[in-house]
């Protein structure tokens, strides 16, 4: 190995100088907490009395025998399976529409994007109003359902909220992908006699596969972690029909102050997300050329 040149030495110095503080912060608030979470999941730790006892895997065994934990896991998976495909497809569809030659494109684009930039607290409150017993939705469709207190529809309402907010967000990702498809492809397809709809399925969908993968991964990670909407719209109810894992962790940690137990549940959620990502990588990852 030859001696590093002055240029390389310069680079190394600057690299650590620039990275120092950001890395310190990330270490403190990301990496240390990850390890620490694992650590406290082996303890019975009550925040109020501040007592700490090592109990090995007891938190995990307790977790696995708690029917509410299983229900939360089920709810989380149901939520993800319900939201991700629809939000992805809707995002792609919106992007495809936005990519056509239409008048007032920037207006429509803004309209679809506004829910995405709005605070989850605001959209959740808005949905409570829309979906309450005398709210606009019931009035428009002549229904009498109290969406959020009915265990059969509470989760659906929250899913609708998420789809409504994120589809516009992912539309922008798709739009960037669509704009990189050369126009000549569409022109060739038109000459071959493909309709707009056929162009969408035969050219757009395959060409944006890398973006689709990216959106699926992000969507999945986001859905598995759903919290704000649950907190505001239903507080996990009615009869725990909307308790998700994130909310379960929060309630155990900050309502019952069972920190070790909450940490154990969080670790399980992390493992769940990790496994789901592995499945995605295996079956959906586009080949890189």
């Amino acid at each position: 190995m030859p001696q590093p040149s002055t240029r390389q030495r310069d680079m190394i110095t600057i690299a650590w100088l620039f990275l120092g503080f950001p890395l310190l912060l990330i270490g403190l608030f990301v990496f240390f907490p990850i390890g620490y979470s694992l650590f406290i999941s082996f303890f019975d730790w009550n925040l109020v009395t501040n007592q700490r006892t090592f109990i090995g895997l007891a938190n995990y065994t307790r977790l696995f025998s708690d029917s509410l934990f299983w229900k939360s896991t089920g709810n989380t998976i149901l939520y993800t399976i319900g939201v991700v495909p629809i939000q992805t497809f809707l995002a792609l569809f919106l992007a495809f529409v936005m990519n056509q030659k239409i008048r007032g494109r920037s207006f429509f684009r803004a309209a679809f994007y506004i829910p995405a930039i709005t605070s989850s607290v605001v959209t959740s409150t808005l949905f409570i109003a829309l979906f309450s017993k005398q709210g606009l939705i019931n009035q428009l469709f002549g229904l009498e359902n109290d969406w959020l207190t009915n265990p059969n529809t509470a989760m659906l309402t929250i899913m609708a909220n998420n789809i409504w907010t994120t589809s516009g967000y992912f539309m922008v990702s798709f739009l960037a992908g669509l704009q990189s498809i050369p126009n000549s492809l569409y022109e060739a397809a038109r000459i071959d006699g493909a309709s707009t709809w056929q162009q969408f399925w035969k050219i757009t969908v395959p060409m944006v596969r890398p973006v689709t993968y990216f959106v699926l991964v992000l969507g999945l990670i986001g859905c598995f972690q759903v919290f704000d909407q649950i907190f505001i719209m239903s507080a996990g109810g009615p009869v725990n029909s909307t308790t998700t894992l994130s909310y379960y962790v929060y309630v155990n940690g900050f309502k019952y102050f069972k920190l070790g137990y909450a940490a154990a549940a969080a670790i399980v959620l992390a493992v769940l997300i990790f496994s789901a990502n592995q499945v995605q990588n295996r079956y959906f990852k586009p080949e890189v050329d």
Binding site: L28, F31, F32, A263, A270
Partner: peptide, 26 residues
């Protein structure tokens, strides 16, 4: 460099809720 960047990116899949309890204790 590669290792460090890979580490940062891989932490993106870690749910924020897992950080919540330790951050609060901290």
């Amino acid at each position: 460099r590669k290792f460090l960047f890979g580490l940062l990116i891989s932490s993106l899949t870690v749910p924020v809720i897992i950080l919540l309890v330790p951050k609060f204790i901290f």
